[in-house]
């Protein structure tokens, strides 16, 4: 079973993501800010296959989490999708520079999110 971490401080979005990905047998964890995200990652020894994260949130922003995940030397690589309403061009580029695998702008199309998640999980297998 794939494990997915959703980092999002918005109230509604995690519910939606959870429902979108519900059809597949994924194990979903949800945290609301950068601090919790980093804690969760440490606790589980980066035991996730995919991370879906927002950019602007309290404690540590999405880029910091992203760079922490992608700069890990050992362990298996983790795919990261950024889902944000801050779709400024510079920010998107920044995200990709840091190694993000995909960038989705809110509002998302459910089918699209689902396909992208599936594809990334397959690629990282």
């Amino acid at each position: 079973m794939y494990r997915i971490l959703v980092i999002e401080d918005d109230e509604v979005m995690p519910k939606i993501i959870e429902r979108i990905l519900h059809k597949e047998a994924y194990h979903l964890d949800h945290v609301v800010n950068g601090k919790e995200a980093l804690q969760k990652l440490e606790e589980t020894n980066y035991g996730y296959d995919l991370i879906i994260t927002d950019i602007m949130m309290p404690y540590a922003n999405g880029f910091e989490v992203l760079s922490r995940v992608k700069n890990r030397k050992e362990g298996k690589p983790i795919a990261v999708i950024i889902v944000s309403n801050a779709g400024n061009e510079d920010m998107i580029l920044e995200g990709f520079k840091l190694g993000a695998d995909d960038f989705l702008k809110k509002p998302v199309i459910p089918g699209e999110l689902l396909i992208r998640v599936k594809r990334l999980l397959m690629r990282y297998q």
Partner: peptide, 15 residues
């Protein structure tokens, strides 16, 4: 308000 919030997050058929 809730519907608007949801629509800020999803589009497509769901929207």
């Amino acid at each position: 308000n809730r519907l608007t919030m949801y629509r800020d997050n999803v589009q497509g058929a769901m929207g």
